[in-house]
Design a protein around this nucleic acid. Structure first.
Length: 489
DNA sequence: TTTTGAGTTGTTCGA
DNA sequence: GTCGAACAACTCAAA
């Protein structure tokens, strides 16, 4: 089709803050029309939103990512217009003002986001503006991956096997080389005015130290992972004290890299270096889990609120603000748990293995409702994902899809000794215990008084005694879960 | 339709 | 110290 330079178009950016493998941007740029790039911050107070409002850590990331996208777009000769409010109002209004004939965007495969997009499309149609919608936040559309009886999968393994055998994710699209901008001067909000970043106190300093948001950094991280880190992935990914994970999750969360870019890059790496296949497969199955959780969310928009297994509606959760707060602040007296919670608070992320341990601890040792933990993670994780976060919390609690058996109660001491043998991880995040010998690093309350004193530790003062006794808490949890079974027959 | 085999990540206890 | 069994039954997915 010959490029027509007549009417401009709009590309609405959402959770796809990149320019490569961006189907909407790609199509818009091929149309030859001048492009206005738009990002809309939804305002939860303004009523219904298409997606769950970002937590604090995610808001920080979003600001950096938008800044990075602004840079990328201006290199291409374009710019990013920022607006806040309701997309179904803002997009048509802007389209009218600039005389746009087409609006492009990538859909988000979640019920509220799709509903929001449908409404927008309707509004646009009333103005005789064309909507062009694309898929791209998943490897496979939920509708394309159903069981024989047309339901969504509830068990991971068959889901993943099917996806791998039946679905061939499309090849990633190249980034446009140049974008023709609209000549009109357009009003944009100022990113700083959105208040996405903390000021007083500025708790984001450690985040800045830890992370570089944006598409360029995401690509670099993916490349570095596939070239180097993946070698030790299969064995090392479970060791929180060592750097054997990809660190891609927040980049993926904001669409700075797409799942199919990851998929194809990983496949390519495995083909080139067969020795690394095991690590790649393991890594890809993590991408599979993200996919699985998103599909689950697509089918159950209330995933973060309602037990998938409704018999858990009767679970005897305890309300204990003080205990919840000690868990949040990393003051439970269990070193691995505290290390994880402090890593989260400090860096906006937590090693995957430790996430399971702290989640199990909150739900089973403290008997606190998984939703409390889910909300805390949502607020503090830079990679908080609307699918993975609630789905995994439900999985740990035992009320989720393909859930862990009720008797699987992580022992935070054994988990520490098994996966953080020398205590590297604990020492890094719980510095007041740093001097303890490996023998007691995961059970400081058993250390001889002499050693404690030599290490400058006074239990109950410089570091808390255990908030609960493991054996007692375990017995209590088993009892609570048994009560649930008795009740439901 | 009924049957069959399997299901991310663990812990404890007793031989 | 090591090892296998028990910890429940249920639902899912496919043949």
């Amino acid at each position: 089709m010959a490029p027509t330079r007549s009417a401009p178009c709009i590309v609405w950016f959402r959770e796809d803050l990149r320019i490569s493998d961006h189907p909407a941007l790609h199509a818009a740029s091929r149309s030859g029309a001048p492009i206005v790039c738009l990002y809309i911050l939804e305002n939860p107070e303004a009523g219904e939103t298409g997606s769950r409002p970002f937590g604090s850590a995610s808001r920080w990331w979003l600001a950096q990512s938008l800044r990075s996208l602004q840079g990328r777009l201006s290199e291409l000769g374009s710019q990013l217009i920022l607006r806040s409010g309701t997309p179904a109002r803002i997009v048509p209004e802007l389209a009218r003002r600039i005389g746009a004939e087409t609006v492009f965007w990538n859909d988000i495969a979640q019920a509220p986001a799709l509903a929001m997009a449908d409404r927008l499309e309707e509004e646009l149609r009333a103005q005789e503006i064309v909507s062009r919608r694309f898929a791209g936040d998943l490897l496979a559309e939920p509708a394309a991956l159903r069981t024989r009886d047309g339901r969504g999968f509830r068990v991971f393994t068959p889901f993943w096997r099917r996806l791998q055998s039946d679905i061939r994710p499309a090849d990633p699209l190249p980034a446009p080389e140049k974008l023709s901008a609209v000549s009109a001067e357009l009003v944009s909000d100022r990113l700083e005015d959105w208040g996405l970043e903390p000021t007083r106190p500025d708790w984001a300093a450690p985040l800045r130290e830890t992370w570089t948001p944006g598409e360029t950094a995401a690509q670099a991280r993916l490349d570095a992972f596939l070239e180097e880190t993946v070698n030790g992935y299969a064995g090392g990914r479970d060791l929180p004290g060592h750097d054997h994970t990809s660190g891609l999750s927040p980049h993926l969360r904001f669409g700075e890299v797409s799942p199919r870019q990851i998929w194809h890059a990983a496949r390519f790496a495995a083909a080139e270096r067969p020795a690394v296949t095991t690590g790649i497969d393991k890594f890809l199955s993590e991408l599979g889990w993200r996919e699985f959780c998103r599909h689950l969310l697509h089918d159950r928009p209330d995933l973060a609120d309602r037990n998938i297994d409704s018999s858990f509606d009767a679970f005897p959760w305890q309300r204990d603000e003080a205990a919840l707060q000690r868990w949040q602040r990393g003051q439970t007296g269990y070193p691995l748990v505290d290390a994880g919670m402090r890593q989260l608070w400090y860096s906006g992320v937590m090693h995957n293995r430790v996430r399971m341990v702290v989640a199990s601890f909150l739900v089973k040792h403290l008997l606190i409702d998984w939703r409390e933990g889910e909300r805390w993670f949502w607020d503090t994780l830079v990679d908080a994902d609307p699918g993975s976060n609630p789905a995994n919390w439900q999985w740990v609690a035992g009320c989720g899809a393909d859930a862990a058996p009720y008797f699987r109660i992580f022992n935070p001491i054994l988990q520490g000794e098994k996966f953080d043998q020398d205590g590297v991880y604990v020492r890094r995040w719980v510095p007041e215990l740093a001097q303890l010998s490996p023998r007691f690093i995961h059970r400081p309350w058993e250390a001889p008084p002499l050693e404690l004193r030599a290490c400058g530790i006074e239990l109950g003062t410089t570091y808390p005694r255990p908030i609960v006794d493991h054996a007692k808490a375990r017995a209590r949890a088993l009892q609570a879960y048994a009560s649930l079974r008795d009740r439901t027959g």
